[in-house]
């Protein structure tokens, strides 16, 4: 198959970017999208031109490194799929494919399609953990957890931190990301003790990092490669309300 690519080229965060066109011919529809990008880059290298920078690593859809906008969708047209797991058969012959980096004030462009998502790490650092030191843990089976809670916690914890939710959101909100961690930990007894404090801190960091607010459009879950659900956001809100109430009551005491 033949394709016409339009790719956002930006040499660094401080320079302006432009869209450039590239054409690739005789692409095997069974190769992955990133393998197609490899072919393009090898071609550019041979022409002594700067190859397109993009983040990727495991190419198994789990490390969360890859991700850019393909025709206006983060990770492209296929549901529940990261770019690295997307194959060229998802496109048609002679299709125009537009590639842009994830757009958000909190995700500054590093180069071309590569953006800096360290804001996510700072959100986690502000409270996305259980405070336990190595060696202090009790016997594992002394904590019994209902299977359905453990399973739900796993589903929330399956987030790969790729940032597609922020890119998909018209407000660049990081609510789905933040809420997935809040809900993972609040569903488990280990995480519940610090729950109220955690949610307040993580939301505060999310705001400081410049992410927008959630207006419940649901675009994040619809585009999430790991199908992290809207229910996580509701759980964060619940935690937040109970955190606010308890802080109100404490004041009165």
């Amino acid at each position: 198959m033949n394709i016409n690519l339009k790719i956002w080229r930006q040499s660094s965060g401080s320079t302006k970017g432009i869209l450039k066109s590239y054409r690739l011919e005789n692409i095997d529809p069974n190769i992955s999208f990133l393998e197609m990008m490899d072919i393009l880059n090898i071609k550019l290298v041979k022409e002594k031109k700067d190859p397109v920078a993009f983040d990727h690593d495991c190419r198994e859809g789990i490390c969360g490194s890859c991700g850019f906008m393909i025709n206006g969708s983060p990770h492209g047209p296929q549901k529940a799929t990261t770019v690295c797991q997307l194959h060229m058969r998802a496109f048609s012959n002679e299709e125009d494919i537009l590639l842009e980096p994830f757009r958000a004030e909190s995700f500054p462009v590093i180069k071309d399609l590569s953006v800096d998502r360290k804001a996510f790490d700072r959100i986690i650092s502000s409270g996305g953990y259980v405070s336990t030191n190595t060696g202090e843990a009790p016997e594992a089976n002394s904590i019994s957890i209902k299977k359905e809670y453990a399973d739900e916690a796993f589903l929330s914890s399956a987030c790969i931190g790729c940032g597609a939710c922020v890119a998909a959101c018209k407000n660049s909100s990081a609510m789905l990301f933040t809420s997935a961690k809040v809900s993972h930990l609040s569903l488990l007894p280990q995480g519940q003790k610090e729950g109220k404090d955690r949610v307040a801190k993580m939301v505060a960091t999310m705001d400081e990092e410049g992410f927008g607010s959630c207006t419940n459009t649901g675009a994040c879950s619809a585009e999430c490669p790991k199908e992290i659900g809207q229910v996580n956001i509701a759980r964060l809100n619940q935690e937040y309300i109970s955190s606010s109430l308890s802080s109100l009551l404490k004041k009165k005491e």
Binding site: P74, A104, E105, S172, G212
Partner: peptide, 11 residues
Amino acid sequence: AKKVISSYSKA
């Protein structure tokens, strides 16, 4: 927060 206003997912 949204750097490029038009870049989001409408689907």
